[in-house]
Write a protein that binds this DNA or RNA. Structure first.
Lengths: 220, 220
DNA sequence: TAATTAAGTTAGATTAATCTAACAAATAAA
DNA sequence: TTTATTTGTTAGATTAATCTAACTTAATTA
């Protein structure tokens, strides 16, 4: 069985490795920074995770997940996203509050709990941020790929997920009145700085940055 | 903030201290045995908990909870029993399965989670074992006191709680078809060994031991 | 009350996860 | 290609929770 800490390392590695395609590995400093620990600490942990057959790792080399490691990471992600869905749907937590609590709940050990929870929630495919929830067998519903930046002037779309799940971003969205399902129309793309003039739910008009437009997953 | 382990010590102390009235304190060995650790380990922890102002304790003396310690213990108990109720009512866990998972869930840190959960469950007063759930302010619904042994031959009652929450006992109850609300009638008290001849829901007849009859809370 | 037993403590060690400081390897730049 | 910089590792220490073995205090009993 994995410790709380080991689980967090696997989850972090999975996230970093699945961020950009074609880069299925991470560096020590990168991981340490992500996890908020010193590189020395991470080195020790990778040695241990290697012993347990969960990561591939050589001295001074990059780190990647083994198949078993990946399976474990998916299980944790599954729990995290199911709990987020529970908090959002059943307990009325807001978008930006669910993550922190789910970080704790994801470490509860009980297969039965997870499957019962999934059933209780009606087998959801996406969490409140629009991220796909892995199935018990490790399958993952296809993630949504288009971002707001992909739209041309005049095109409309609906928000289906957030790419950036930081509290800062989510709170900003809340302030703008944007959530999953909100309709956004691109009125103009400002060529000077790439920013977008958008309308939110066909009402309020706003100018948003490239960074912003890169952080929203949408569907036409 | 308290560690997982510290919380478990406080909870154990609370349970032992509230078991028999007029004995609001516990011994080192007793606590260690209860928690499954060695007495030496418990001694160290009591020193630490004393430093934190959570227990009263002197070298070679008994241990008891301070007011702050008691408040903390009640918070944990509250969470434990709310989660048990959730698992039983919403996720269809059976009587004997809820405890183990709730042991983990009770350590999740989020005031909001607890109050939202309580609201979601409709402010229950008792958990699936019939034990009272402490309120946010520390109030506790009055516990039920009468046990099956208190009945005379010919009297009837309904099961309202279990005194012994061991898996062994709960599974035995399940086999007998007894749960909260089940009607039990005492047909005869066998004076030889104190055992009882009972009928369960006015159907099946059974002989049960003194130990058994002492472990069931009932109401007429 | 002195001896025996039960209960509780101390000292020293271990494991997991972390740190700092010093060092080594790999990569980038001049 | 030598130097500088970035990246990663090692060694040694720390903290929390645990253990064993030896010791001390308190309680019981003969």
């Amino acid at each position: 069985m994995l410790s709380y800490t080991e689980e967090n390392y696997l989850k972090a590695l999975f996230k970093i490795c699945s961020q950009c395609e074609g880069r299925p590995e991470a560096g020590t400093n990168e991981m340490a920074a992500y996890l908020g620990v010193k590189p020395a600490t991470a080195t020790d942990m990778f040695k241990k995770l290697k012993e347990k057959g969960l990561v591939d790792y050589e001295r001074y080399g990059k780190i990647s997940l083994t198949e078993i490691g990946k399976k474990n990471a998916l299980t944790i992600l599954r729990k995290h996203r199911l709990w987020e869905t529970f908090l959002y749907q059943k307990l009325d937590f807001s978008w930006d509050e669910v993550h922190e609590v789910a970080e704790q709940l994801e470490h509860i050990q009980s297969e039965k709990l997870v499957s019962k929870l999934e059933d209780f929630l009606g087998y959801p495919e996406f969490d409140p941020h629009g991220d796909p929830i892995p199935k018990a067998n490790g399958d993952m519903p296809p993630a949504v790929k288009m971002i707001l930046s992909d739209l041309k002037a005049g095109e409309s779309c609906r928000v289906v997920a957030v790419k950036d799940t930081s509290v800062l971003f989510l709170q900003y969205l809340k302030r703008l009145g944007i959530s999953i399902g909100t309709k956004i129309t691109v009125i103009e793309k400002v060529s000077f700085d790439g920013s977008l003039q958008i309308s939110i739910d066909e009402q309020e008009t706003r100018n948003v940055s490239v960074k912003f437009a890169d952080s929203l997953f949408v569907a036409k």
